[in-house]
Amino acid sequence: MDLLNALVAFTNFVIVPATAYGAQLALGALGVTLIYGILRFSNFAHGETMAFGTMSVLGITALFQSWGISFGPLPTALLALPFGALITIALVLSTDRVVYKFYRKVKAAPVMLVIVSMGVMFMMNGFIRMIVGTDDRRFADGARFIIKAREFKQATGLNEGLAIKTTQAITLVVAIMTVAALFYFLNKTRTGKSMRAYSDNEDLALLSGINPERVVKITWILVAILATIAGTLYGLDKSFKPFIYMQLLLPIFAAAIVGGLGSPLGAIAGGFVIAFSEITFTYAFKKVITYLGPDGWKPDGLVQLLSTDYKFAVSFAILIIVLLFKPTGLFKGKSV
């Protein structure tokens, strides 16, 4: 029985990665939920928006690196982030102008907009692949670790090491800053309040003189910023592969629905629920259980509930359970 080592192993392999992944999902789900709250459709192009944002950041990072600009121990991509977000904002605003605006004018059914977003997804997908190709790219520079496993072992004298990657810490810090700024904006500023009013009751908001086109524009700007940050953090933490972002669509939607579509707080909670359950269910607990059991005893198998390839099944199962028992999500979302 070795509680401390078990705890360290569990932290190292489950808590740390799940926290980073959860923050990334939460930021992605926030984008989905904002569009749902204001524009009232599920945006299938959100994964590609994230990929586009990451691609822009990637390009600017390469530019900065060629100029010799770096951010010390932090990745250069963080410096490039605002510029990448600007490019993404320009893209989504022009997409809205050219594509989505028409359907708002004719008051198309929400499901029509979902199909439209499928077309946008296809186009962005092709565009991204034409620009950067499909290769796997790593763009995290600077220091790789904040705490190295070996140093941790030496400092504490434990058998198990605890490693925290710079990108994981950055993910959490940036996500907290972003969410704080977003909530400040939504709850304290006039524009943010008008957005919430529009989301809660469109007719009353219109009646009180809120300009719907302005609300929509600001929503898209926020969504572009969130998507760029979420995509870049995910890309920094793992690596940038364009097709991965389409696969992220399912956990992101699951997070948004589990939390309650249209509820920003719910999106964050949903992101962490999905991330923690995906990683807990697919982690092999052999090591942890060996420490917890009596000395010299080992479990036979890996003690892994599901193989890692079934992580989608986990987010899906949670989605279904929530849909069955609490259709509006954990934090009462919309159910139009």
Binding site: V111, Q247, L250, D309, F312
Partner: peptide, 22 residues
């Protein structure tokens, strides 16, 4: 998923497809 809102059916089918392929 039927009987819930239409978007939920969409997401549910997206999920079941991923699981079948997995």
């Amino acid at each position: 998923a039927l009987g819930l809102r239409s978007d939920y059916l969409a997401i549910a089918t997206l999920g079941i497809a991923e699981i079948i392929i997995a």
